[in-house]
Design a protein around this nucleic acid. Structure first.
Length: 571
RNA sequence: GGCCCCAUCGUCUAGUCAGGUCUAGGACAUCAGGUUUUCAUCCUGAAGACCGGGGUUCGAAUCCCCGUGGGGUCACCA
């Protein structure tokens, strides 16, 4: 019994293809929290052994997504994010990108081959696919038939020496099952013969995921592997590899999956299929005709629409959905960020998917921050069953937090959001007007996106205001144009008023109502419709204050003209 | 289909390991009232679950078995 247990090292090892998936974010969060709770380190590694799919841009995006969420890694690639540096190599285990570790993998592979625990194989992908299909047709389980082992060893070595393309396979023991000890699920055993001689080095010379992950975890001193349950069936392979290489087996903890509302694993593909559903009702030509130039070519659109498995690039699918007015389900961290959620709410919410915090004085708790998570997280409280991602609950959490943000903080963070996603709002408004509007909108909004929507009226040019017919009728032209009468009368009051700040303006409306013995709605609504075109806006004082006197009067005049036009037309 | 995992309100879950205090608690959603110059909030209340069947036991949401249902995975992707 060792009295000194090694420090906990957890790791998150995304493959840099696309943005960070929300499920990946939760995995990272739990790894981070566990390391923190145990006084250890959280390490980040890039699994970029798929040359075709990996990209630098994606690696950068994923790192930023994590940093944005506040999931900082103690070890791994260094980046600057909002003035802080994340990453580093305090234990000298770099490099952290697998593509830079090829020599290391090859050294271990040579060792396995030398020991007869791995062997070269020359089957082509086509040959293997044919065998796999044949097995499937006969309803048999496909396993690699060790065809390569029929070739004399000396000949295999010679063919490799001659530069013939080949892979390397691990030779699985024939009569040993593998038992996996899992901290969440308990012991899981796999019978001998379940696993075949899987590939550990691809023809391009890169290791497969299974091999790289085992070597790196061992060499980087990873003690605890927390990952999604979809990896459970991979674990016996990894354990077999550890045995062959003489490595210790880390502690495994497989976490339940995150489901979408259809009850299947949440995936990036959902966004694709959501848009694709439109073709059940409409033809490719119809849809194409509706698209602005440059979104997608007709041929590409047709190919994609006609192929169930085809997937569009992330950017293209976003633009397509926007053009068609389709709301996409958020799947990646970037989606949620763009949708205006707070990072601290996202981490709070996803931590509740498959995990529960300890109780406080016997009571349940579900609102907490990263500091709490860093203290309270424990593998013992990870659940076993899959969790559905409920966006309504996320939205409710976000509403709670965003409406309670201190005023200055809200203004600053909302401005940051606008700079990234709604630049017109920060650019066209004065700092003062932005603040007035932002704070007016704060108690009403659920997300920054929602807040931004409530602000756009102020930066829409007066000439582009669209008057909602229903709202105009209800509040202005109906009942012998009573609302219009009030509006014209009140315009005179406004014209004589000079202090264009919130309080005096609200009071002006209130006093007018009292004097004329009418309800607030009778005055505020006609004005609201006049200056925004819609029956919804921030409280009337703030709405007018944000617009300024000149703009307010101009918009009222335009609306009066519009109403007269409608009345004359008998609408 | 083979293998593997899972199973408490519509959803996330507490309770399950150490069976009784559970006429099963909380949160989100829903519904009904109320507050509010619009929208959104906010307040009060209501309804709502132990997948089925066998065991074990004085006693089972909790332990065991079978069934059913759901999911994951079966690549030179990770």
């Amino acid at each position: 019994m060792s009295s000194v247990s090694p420090p906990v090292i957890t790791r998150f090892a995304p493959s840099p293809s696309g943005h960070l998936h929300i499920g990946g974010a939760r995995t990272a969060l739990f790894c981070w929290a566990y390391a923190k709770a145990r006084g250890g380190h959280f390490l980040l590694r890039l699994e970029d052994t798929d040359q075709a799919r990996s990209s630098e841009a994606s690696a950068k995006a994923i790192l930023e997504d994590l940093a944005w969420l506040g999931i900082d890694w103690d070890e791994g690639p260094e980046i600057e994010f909002k003035g802080r540096t994340v990453g580093g190599d305090p234990r000298s285990v770099a490099p952290f990108a697998q593509s830079e570790r090829l020599d290391i993998y090859n050294k271990h592979i040579d060792q396995l081959i030398g020991e007869g625990k791995a062997y070269y194989a020359f089957d082509t992908a086509e040959e293997l696919a044919a065998k796999r299909n044949a097995a499937q047709r006969e309803k048999k389980q496909y396993r690699y038939d060790r065809a390569a082992m029929q070739i004399p060893e000396a000949e295999r070595a010679e063919r490799v020496a001659n530069g013939e393309p080949h892979v390397v396979r691990l030779r699985m023991p024939d009569d040993e099952g593998v038992s996996v000890k899992d901290e969440v699920l308990g012991d899981v055993s796999f019978a001998p013969g379940e696993l075949d001689d899987f590939i550990i080095r691809k023809m391009d010379g890169y290791p497969t995921y299974h091999f790289a992950v085992v070597v790196d975890d061992a060499l980087m001193g990873v003690t605890h592997v927390l990952r999604g349950q979809e990896h459970l069936n991979n674990t016996p392979r990894h354990v077999a590899l550890q045995k062959a290489l003489g490595f210790d087996t880390p502690v495994y903890a497989h976490m339940p999956l995150i489901f979408n509302d259809k009850g299947a694993k949440m995936s990036k593909r959902e966004r694709d299929t959501t848009v694709k559903e439109i073709f059940k009702r409409r033809s490719v030509e119809e849809v194409y005709a509706e698209l602005p130039e440059g979104v997608i070519g007709i041929e590409e659109l047709a190919d994609w629409a006609g192929d169930k498995k085809a997937q569009l690039e992330g950017e293209t699918i976003d633009r397509l959905a926007e053009a068609l007015g389709i709301l996409l389900p958020e799947v990646s961290v970037e989606d949620f960020r763009k949708a205006g959620y707070l990072p601290e709410v996202i981490t709070n919410f996803i931590s509740l998917l498959g995990w529960t915090p300890s109780k406080q004085d016997g009571a349940d708790r579900e609102k907490f921050d990263m500091d709490f998570l860093a203290k309270d997280f424990d593998i013992a409280r990870i659940g076993k069953s899959n969790a559905r991602f409920d966006r309504a609950k996320l939205m409710a959490f976000n509403t709670d937090v965003i409406t309670q943000l201190p005023a200055d903080e809200f203004v600053e963070r909302f401005a940051g959001y606008c700079r990234d996603y709604e630049p017109a709002i920060v650019e066209k408004l004065s700092e003062k007007a932005f603040r007035v509007l932002a704070l007016a909108v704060q108690p009403q909004c659920k997300t920054f996106f929602d807040a931004a929507r409530r602000c756009v009226f102020a930066v829409t040019p007066a000439s582009e205001i669209v008057y909602e017919e229903k709202a105009v009728k209800k509040n202005l032209t109906r009942n012998d144009a009573a609302g219009l009468g009030v509006l014209r009368d009140f315009r005179g009051v406004l014209a004589d008023h000079d202090d264009w700040s919130t309080e005096p303006l609200s009071k002006l409306v209130a006093d007018y109502c009292e004097k004329n013995e009418i309800g607030m709605g009778m005055v505020a609504q006609p004005i609201r419709v006049a200056v925004t075109g819609t029956p919804v806006s921030p409280p009337i004082g703030e709405t007018l204050a944000a617009l300024g006197k000149e703009e307010t009067l101009d918009r009222i005049d335009r609306c009066v003209v519009e109403c007269q036009r409608l009345l004359a037309a008998g609408v």
